[in-house]
Design a protein around this nucleic acid. Structure first.
Lengths: 340, 340
DNA sequence: TTGAAAGCGATACCAC
DNA sequence: GTGGTATCGCTTTCAA
């Protein structure tokens, strides 16, 4: 639609020089007299000249653009990672496409196709899980941040927490506070982050190591048809209504934890005493809640930094030193486990 | 970096046909025998062929891409709008660039330059305010959703609420509940949404119409150096510490309201009775709070729909029928104004 | 210091 | 139904 915009030819003609010279001036390359430069720059500015990116990237076979794929930018945890990665990439001279896959495989495939078509220089997956490898005649560097799945590219780096250990630590925190019947609450959205068994594995292992019997009735999983907050509340209510009691809740996600806390509060349970709750992500949800929710800080800043650093290294032609980078996590106890 | 990918020439050679035919087949254009089609399609698939977007858009001078500029995707209100707009655009065959300007004029300018260079077909501003017009030899259709400022393009459509009326309604809701000293709390982030006077105008007008004296000490504005939640709490505390009491709070944003509620709660104020609070946006923050915060629903879905519809119309070559679309808002009273 | 011209990959017109 | 070829805007090599 846009009316044909000013091209390098127009500038060249107006300045009475060749396109080669204009190109050189505008890119600070080659050599030219100061007079030519001033002239060209002035005319370009006057004409509102903006280089045609399509032509440029066609010619250079590179776009200086990175794709950031995430299931849901409206999710606090993911958007923090996305924004941080974007900032770091921009500082390094790369633009970012932010792509919201909505946890939908088909949409993700569509996106990836379109991104390859758009000649992105690299891909960063943030959160979620990828089920199908990329089928295309390209070989891009790929970084996975808090994400599972392989794309089949030759250079892939994984950055994330040790999730089994993380859920182990959540569970053992509750047990250390005296909990004897610990429930696990999750909605599928959480599971998308890594494979199912990874997230829950630490819960099972910890129970076993502590010599506690696993009660399947206390493993509450939701299909995530509603917001995790509401769903978590429902799961908790259903469990209690069915007569299965518990004194500890491992919630895979702070929103989930908040939902559980709200449900318990509504039932008059003394949280932090009768029932202890721990969430995960150290998001705003755990901090604004009353009582404040214990959680696990996952160090998103470090994840983004290390992921982007690895990507930049690969873009520079280097092979990754480390393909599996583990970022430390940290349990943060607040009122819901400490009591008051 | 990507190893030179398969081009239409490679396919043509392998299939023993011309590039013109390959192009026709792959785009369902022109005519060709079924046999040729099957052959070309098979080979293309085998080779993992993906059309080069740069070449295509260079040739077609169109990218079927829309830029979505927003100050902050991690903000609930904006991300809802962004995601909705993106979905609608995708359904209409347009890809979206999601650009996070961080309320930074310079970054926004940079983005816009780069977007024009990338030949986007249109721009949607979501939230915030633009201070400088676009200087470039293009004429793109532009839609502003909950955003002020002009780009200087010939076709611009504004979509949003009647903000002065909205803050008027917030204020009058409190007064109707008996409040006599109503404070206004905002952090600059809110002000970015539209021009300052627009947001606060209704507050002033309502006080005046109700015959209430305006007390400057009750107009609390923060510089937004921290998260609005914390800043709002600080503003409220400072005000009370300074000895200026109030019985109503108009909070420009639910996060701001939540911060105020938390601060008041911590001081033992009976919210909904001693002090009534109303926020704005009907976001998750107002809903998860205890007590539940009264707020104003702004109809983001409708905003996105009408904005995208207007954009698509313009992209289709039509001139906009309406340049200023006002979406209705709706006060939702919950515990913080109703009491219990 | 400057310029002419080739070529990146896809499309579309026009001839066959 | 199919193919040759000019073209989009830019970069870059090589020669002047």
């Amino acid at each position: 639609m846009a009316k044909r915009s000013v091209s390098i030819y127009d500038i060249a003609k107006l300045a009475g020089v060749s396109t080669a010279t204009v190109s050189n001036v505008l890119n600070n390359k080659g050599s030219y007299s100061e007079k030519t430069r001033d002239l060209v720059v002035r005319i370009a500015r006057e004409q509102g000249y903006v280089a045609n990116f399509a032509a440029k990237s066609l010619r250079e076979a590179s776009t200086k653009t990175i794709a950031l794929l995430t299931p849901d930018v409206s999710n606090d945890f993911f958007s923090t990672l996305v924004l941080r990665a974007e900032g770091l990439l921009r500082a390094a001279g790369y633009a970012s496409y932010i792509c919201n896959t909505g946890n939908d495989d088909e949409r993700e495939d569509e996106y990836v196709r379109s991104l390859i078509s758009k000649q992105v220089d690299g891909i960063v997956y943030i959160g979620g899980v990828t089920r199908t490898p990329i089928h295309a005649a390209v070989d891009l560097p790929v970084v996975h941040i808090d994400h599972t799945g392989s794309t089949g590219m030759s250079r892939e780096v994984y950055v994330g927490n040790d999730m089994p250990q993380l859920s182990y630590d959540m569970t053992s925190t509750l047990i250390a506070r005296g909990c004897e019947r610990v429930a696990l609450v999750s909605v599928s959205a959480s599971f998308y982050r890594t494979e199912e068994h990874d997230q829950a594995a630490g819960y099972y292992r910890c129970l076993e190591e502590c010599g506690m019997r696993l009660d399947r009735n206390l493993v509450l999983e939701g299909p995530h048809r509603q917001t995790s907050l509401i769903e978590a509340a429902q799961l908790v209510n259903e469990c209690l209504d069915a007569g299965y009691g518990f004194d500890g809740v491992v919630a895979l996600g702070d929103r989930v934890a908040l939902g559980a806390v709200n449900a318990l509060k509504a039932r008059g349970v003394a949280i932090g005493r009768d029932v202890r709750v721990i969430g995960m992500d150290d998001s705003i949800y755990s901090r604004i809640s009353t009582p404040a929710i214990s959680t696990v800080r996952r160090n998103t800043a470090e994840m983004a930094e290390r992921g982007v650093a690895a990507l930049l290294a690969m873009l520079g032609g280097a092979d990754p030193e480390e393909t599996h980078i583990v970022v430390p996590h940290e349990v943060i106890e607040r009122t819901t486990t400490l009591g008051e």
